[in-house]
Amino acid sequence: MQQTLPLPKYHSVYLVLKERLRDGLYDERVPGELELMEEFAVSRATVRKALENLAQEGLIERSAGRGTRRLPPPATAGHDAPPPTRMTGLLDNLITASLDTTVKVIEHEYVPATEPVARMLQVEPKSQVLRAVRVRSTKAGPVSCITTWVPREFARNLGRRQLGRKAMLVLMEESGIEIGRAHQTISARQADAAVAGLLGMPLGSALLSVNRVVYDVKDRPVLWLQGLYCPDRYEYEMELSRVGEIDAKVWVSKDFNAYMR
């Protein structure tokens, strides 16, 4: 079993301060370097690096003589309305979130379906399925490593070049597949050597793990996805009520800095 490696000290300080800023624990004034050095028992260089990262994200402003002050969260600024899509609810939001990222196709090949893949996609074992591995990134760095399997009959519009340009669900809709619903589970996993390298994270880092099966309107499985997400760059929110519909939303941050190697 892999052991989780500790985060760099500056990154631990940075994460704590960012959560405090998000939770509104600081008014306009943010504690200075000396106060933070004492609180976290770290060096000035460590505190300075954490504050520099927060400043680069637009969460704080630092100036000589005035110290450090909190800035309004980037989410409060106005954003252009997302382009309309034909799907609604969570699936629509997943597509919209993907539009804020770029994608690199790491693997793209037709392979015989293993027993777990065949079971999830309700196809015969060893039948041909498309296996694609993609890394999604913002300007700040990688956000997710996503592995998908698609039955060959539903993969005719999913070429390597196309997957590098558009979201998979958009391509499937364009090929005439009508998306109906999805079943999703969320858990946690540690980054193995391969994923850690692709996401630029330490080996053993905690990742958000998403397992999703997408069905068409005839309730046929058309896609099985296993996604591993950097937890400080990907957010999942769900509104729950006693009656009525469940509204879920996904955000991908465009501003968070990449992990330092």
Rank of each mutant, 00 (worst) to 15 (best):
A118K: 07
D23M: 15
R20K: 14
F40I: 12
N53K: 10
W149Q: 02
E153Y: 03
T76R: 13
L130F: 02
A41I: 14
R161V: 13
R212L: 06
D23R: 15
G244N: 04
M201C: 07
N93K: 11
G176H: 03
T4L: 06
Y259T: 08
V123M: 05
R242D: 13
L5R: 15
H183N: 09
Q2P: 15
P73I: 05
L203T: 10
K254W: 00
G204D: 09
P73E: 09
Y10I: 00
L5C: 01
N157I: 02
T68A: 01
L169K: 01
T114N: 06
Q3K: 14
E153L: 09
V135G: 01
D80G: 11
K9L: 11
R22M: 07
S43F: 08
A248F: 00
C230V: 15
G204C: 04
Y259H: 09
N93D: 13
T114P: 05
Q56S: 12
R20A: 09
L90H: 12
L207A: 02
A167Q: 06
A45Y: 09
G58S: 11
S43G: 14
L207K: 09
H11N: 10
G197F: 03
A118T: 10
I146R: 10
E239V: 10
L223I: 04
I177R: 05
S12C: 05
L34G: 10
E52M: 09
S43R: 13
E237K: 07
I60D: 04
D255H: 15
L130Y: 02
T185K: 08
G204M: 07
E239Y: 13
A167W: 02
R70N: 02
R66P: 02
D80M: 07
V213C: 02
M1V: 14
D232I: 04
L15S: 14
T76M: 09
D192H: 13
H79N: 13
G24E: 03
L207V: 12
R181E: 05
E52C: 03
A196C: 08
R233Q: 09
G58R: 11
R70P: 06
Q128V: 04
Y10Q: 13
D23C: 08
T147E: 10
K249L: 04
G200H: 08
I186H: 06
L199P: 06
T76C: 04
L228M: 15
G180S: 01
L21C: 01
R161Q: 12
A132I: 08
V210Y: 02
L7Y: 11
A155Y: 04
S127T: 12
G227I: 03
E19K: 15
L203Q: 14
P84H: 01
P231L: 08
W224V: 05
T4W: 03
L158S: 01
V170S: 13
A118P: 06
A196S: 07
V217C: 08
Q128F: 00
M260Q: 14
F154Q: 09
S43T: 15
S144E: 04
L163M: 14
V222C: 01
A140S: 10
P31I: 06
K9F: 07
M201E: 05
L54K: 11
Q56W: 12
H183A: 05
G65D: 01
E28P: 05
R220H: 10
R160S: 06
Q226N: 15
R156Q: 15
Y229A: 03
